[in-house]
Design a protein around this nucleic acid. Structure first.
Length: 628
DNA sequence: AACAATGGCGCG
DNA sequence: ACCGCGCCATTGTT
């Protein structure tokens, strides 16, 4: 520990003032072959904000560091050459770099460099920390008697890491030099932690994939703004219509709300207020448990026109919020929308997206195409969209080792049809479309650990068909008899739930230590852990079934993204989206078919390697907009 | 006034 | 008693 503390206190912080000075530091870095990089900017947006200050930390034998700081804001004449040199260092595979939140740092350098950069040999302490603590949380008292404990996820900011592992409090904001100095010992600790938990392959993957996320954020997505505004106008007209219908009905039935705060569109009934909705439905003689779409649907079927109007209202209101959110985010510099991506916020390893969320562009529903049509590539470009087909089922076949399922995929047999045939006893060729559809629902249900009860519910809500519990139990039984490997695997996962394994942690007080807890792993080795509070098990069986599938899917798509960035993308052909099992590129129209074929090849090759012996199939197509 | 929890719904 | 996420409006709490 003493060593580390020494290394934290940089022997010297040198402010770099001139180009010759900078060049001699470059020479030093080349010799050291390892450095920490930290920077601050005038804001979060690489397209319009500027890099302010760059700090480089060099290990200084044996256990201390030297930090150099360049204040670019003060010395604009140095800016161009320094950023160029930094890009060179980041692309130099011989020199190892340690960063915190590499997406932030790299996106600024990428945006300033104005060319595709082949970053390599990067270690991101934030990603490393997220990988090591994936899914972990603490319970803190909430004061709410109904729910006295609230979950608090582990914080992975640089300040938290420095405090947790090194026991130092970084200054508020300000001084990136201190942060840069902390990066070197943090690297050593987290690299050890990754090794102890056998998470190095996952970490290497995440470090490679980061640059693909940078690329997606900088590329952004083209949106037809005027088309969006037209659609908003249309839907606003209709939503007013629907509100009027509901109000009219409320008025006719003599329904008056108790309170009116002046903000509401009408004084009779606020459709956004479930209290009002429930009260009104109660007055009409309905007693729904809640006001979900499913319930409203059945009320509408029973002749309640209010329920129908409310559903339409909610749908339109969602669309309007969606469209307005996207319009609000159109960037003034390039007219495109730049959603942010987060690499490992989720405990399974999936990527998430925010501001706006690019992973929830409408797809289902009659008016989804009208919205998707608004997403368009630049002039002379086309979209290439490719998705991994039935990926979660293929993953299930691989991790469960179920022979029937694996054989079906190897022979290219339609698994939904096969399931339908096994369940109903009808010969494979004679399975009807509706039988196949029902079996499809069942296949997906199984991934989540669905029960006879939930199967019954699903069939009722999807097909309006009531099946008694005995029958769904029978179907479930036949399902598992067809795929005995899956049943065995689920049993094993269930036993893992209460099985205690040691996971390694580190903090500045205890150094390295391990705790007994519940964990799952993906094929690549990504681990999700659940804390144990006393003897309590916090994982659910559903999570034990689902996490390895979802997590392996995340591993796979990230591997594809890294490969696509490195081997396929360039200034003209860019990756612009990644939606769990789908990749979207924007490419020159005259080469679109070629890119589609290459993307498909990458996805199938990498997928089939990862899931061997289960083959992976991908479907790629060229599109003029997201609807086609 | 600012923050947290909740219900409801979009995507996979 | 179905997994993971983000977003919004409402409502309750500090």
């Amino acid at each position: 520990m003493v060593d580390m503390i020494d290394r934290l206190e940089p022997q010297s912080i040198t402010m770099v003032q001139s180009l010759p000075e900078w060049e001699s530091i470059l020479g030093e870095i080349e010799m050291a072959e390892f450095f920490g990089l930290n920077l601050t900017a005038t804001g979060p947006d690489p397209l319009c904000h500027e890099i302010q200050r760059i700090s480089l930390a060099l290990p200084n034998a044996p256990s201390s560091s030297t930090v150099y700081t360049v204040d670019i804001a003060d010395r604009p004449e140095l800016k161009e050459s320094i950023i160029g040199d930094l890009a060179g260092l980041l692309e130099n595979g011989r020199i190892k770099k340690t960063l915190h939140d590499s997406k932030f740092v790299l996106s600024f350098i990428r945006a300033r460099a104005g060319r595709k950069l082949n970053f390599c040999s990067i270690f991101d302490v934030m990603l490393a920390s997220q990988i090591c603590w994936s899914g972990y949380y603490y319970l803190t008292p909430s004061g709410n008697p109904k729910n006295p404990w609230t979950k608090r996820l582990v914080d992975h900011s640089l300040a938290s890491l420095a405090e947790r592992h090194l026991g130092i409090i970084l200054d508020e904001e300000g001084c990136p030099a201190q942060g840069a100095a902390a990066l070197l010992p943090l690297h050593d600790i987290l690299a050890d932690l990754l090794a102890k938990n056998d998470l190095q392959r996952v970490a290497d993957l995440e470090f490679r994939a980061a640059i693909a996320l940078v690329e997606m954020e900088i590329s952004g997505i083209g949106l037809d703004s005027s088309g969006a505004r037209d659609l908003i106008d249309q839907e606003e007209d209709e939503i007013i219509d629907q509100i009027w219908r509901m109000q009219d009905e409320a008025e006719r039935k003599g329904f008056v709300t108790v309170s009116f705060d002046g903000k509401r569109l009408c004084c009779y009934l606020n459709p956004d207020r479930q209290e009002d909705v429930m009260a009104f439905l109660a007055k009409r003689g309905y007693r729904p448990a809640n006001t979900k779409a499913e319930v409203l649907k059945s009320l509408a079927a029973a002749g309640c026109s209010f329920a129908e109007a409310l559903m339409r209202y909610r749908h339109l209101s969602y669309n309007l919020l969606f469209l307005n959110k996207w319009l609000e985010k159109v960037h003034p510099l390039d007219g495109r929308v730049h959603p942010q991506y987060f690499q490992i916020p989720s405990s399974t390893g999936r990527i998430s997206s925010r501001h706006p969320n690019a992973q929830q562009i409408p797809r289902r529903g009659d008016d989804a195409p009208a919205i998707r049509r608004l997403f368009r590539p630049a002039a002379g470009k086309r979209y290439v969209k490719a998705d991994l087909s039935n990926i979660e089922l293929r993953i299930m076949a691989r991790i469960s080792g179920d022979e029937a399922m694996q054989e079906a995929f190897i022979k290219g047999i339609d698994l939904h049809r096969l399931t339908a045939s096994r369940i109903s006893g009808t010969p494979f060729e004679e399975v009807t479309d509706s039988q196949r559809q029902a079996a499809k629902a069942m296949n997906f249900l199984l991934i989540y650990g669905g029960s006879a009860k939930s199967l019954q519910w699903r069939i009722l809500s999807d097909y309006g068909e009531f099946i008694c519990l005995d029958e769904t139990e029978e179907r479930l039984e036949r399902f598992f008899c067809s795929y005995p490997g899956v049943r065995e695997w689920q049993k094993m996962q269930l036993s893992q739930m209460s099985y205690t394994m040691q996971h390694h942690f580190h903090n500045c007080v205890r150094g390295f230590f391990s705790l007994p807890l519940t964990a799952t792993r993906t094929i690549l080795g990504r681990r999700r852990i659940w804390p144990r509070f006393g003897a309590g098990i916090t994982a659910s069986k559903f999570q034990m079934y689902n996490t390895p599938c979802q997590g392996t899917g995340a591993d796979l798509i990230k591997l594809v993204m890294a490969e696509v960035y490195e081997k396929l993308s360039d200034e003209e052909a860019r990756i612009i989206g990644s939606i769990h099992d789908e990749i979207i590129l924007e490419v020159p129209e005259d080469r679109a078919e070629e890119y589609a074929a290459r993307l498909k090849e990458i996805m199938e090759r990498i997928g089939s390697e990862m899931l061997y012996p289960v083959p992976v199939k991908a479907e790629a197509k060229v599109m003029r907009n997201l609807a086609e």
